[in-house]
């Protein structure tokens, strides 16, 4: 169906629903006595990680292994070679080694796109997070989790029409927020972004969302989903807010704030969480929290993505 997965932007409603439906079937296979599928036997998937990420890397690794692919992990963090050259050399090396699929995480926005369009490799490319640009599998697993909580066993074939989502926090640095904006609105959901003025991107005027700086008024609308973003200190070279205490007070999802939400409202977080900063521990551990479901669903969603990109005849779609 698709040659690469670089962004959620081009998926479209039907493409996204089809991918989520495959993920449903993948999730079902993980309930079986034998969880391993022969589907990608003989295929080599390289996890090419230029940036730390334990959970995403392990999730992709588990997904590829459940599909019987051979997995090679290439941790390129700390490379002193300049980014462009390094990526080219690495890609050409992996091509020579016979990689069929490359899962790439890179600190530079657009790195996955460069890899896919460069001609350095014929492998199918899956974007596992590029700079502050996109993290499509995270958005897909978020959409999958929302759909599953809302519709359970009857999720297949459904979009997210009419679902209201509030995304809170460091939107400026968040590729998760960007991928979710395109995917969730593409599936028919309405998205409202809430962030300190310093953490709202300037380009937001062109996004299909509402934006604001007041968390309490956004929560008062009684949204179906509140998605908390991680405060990414590692991407902040300057002060974006006066203090952690002030951030937690104004933009943290405290127990008191959560208590004012309708019972049906889901609380999501892509992890890893800064407990006590953007989300209170007791909220993260409450029944409305989907944090662990997101992790579990991540494997099924990544199995679906790897299947979609790698199972069919390459370039035949």
């Amino acid at each position: 169906m698709s040659e690469h997965l670089l962004s959620t932007r081009g998926l479209g409603r039907e493409g996204a629903v089809a991918l989520l439906d495959i993920a449903e079937d993948m999730a079902d296979t993980q309930q079986r006595q034998v969880k391993k599928l022969p589907t990608l036997r003989g295929t080599t998937v390289v996890n090419l990680f230029f940036e730390d990420s334990t959970r995403t890397r392990i999730s992709f690794e588990a997904a590829a292994k459940r599909l019987s692919a051979d997995v090679i992990t290439f941790s390129a963090k700390g490379s002193s070679v300049s980014k462009g050259e390094s990526l080219q050399d690495t890609a050409q090396t992996l091509q020579a080694m016979g990689a069929d699929g490359i899962v790439i995480r890179h600190p530079a926005s657009g790195a996955a796109e460069v890899l896919a369009s460069s001609g350095w490799t014929r492998a199918g490319v899956v974007n596992a997070g590029d700079g502050t640009h996109e993290h499509p599998t995270q958005a897909l697993l978020d959409a999958f989790t929302i759909r599953k909580r809302l519709h359970g066993d009857t999720s297949r074939g459904r979009d997210l029409d009419g679902v209201s989502v509030v995304v809170v926090g460091d939107v400026l640095h968040s590729r998760v927020a960007r991928s979710n904006v395109w995917l969730l609105t593409g599936l028919g959901a309405s998205v409202r972004l809430v962030a300190p003025p310093t953490l709202l991107p300037g380009a937001i005027g062109g996004w299909p969302v509402e934006a604001g700086i007041d968390l309490d008024s956004a929560l008062a609308t009684g949204p179906d989903v509140v998605m908390m973003l991680r405060v990414q200190r590692e991407r902040m070279s300057e002060a974006f807010f006066p203090s952690s205490r002030e951030y937690a007070a104004l933009y943290g999802l405290s127990a008191a704030r959560a208590a004012r939400l309708p019972d049906r409202t889901l609380v999501m977080h892509p992890g890893p969480m800064n407990r006590g900063l953007e989300i209170a521990g007791e909220v993260a551990d409450s029944p409305r929290s989907t944090v662990l479901e997101q992790v579990q669903n991540g494997i099924a969603v990544r199995m679906a993505v790897l299947y979609d990109v790698l199972a069919g005849r390459r370039g035949a779609a």
Binding site: M1, M26, G312
Partner: peptide
């Protein structure tokens, strides 16, 4: 052939 959609079991 191009990747096939899966079905429900």
């Amino acid at each position: 052939q191009p990747t096939r959609p899966t079905g429900r079991t």
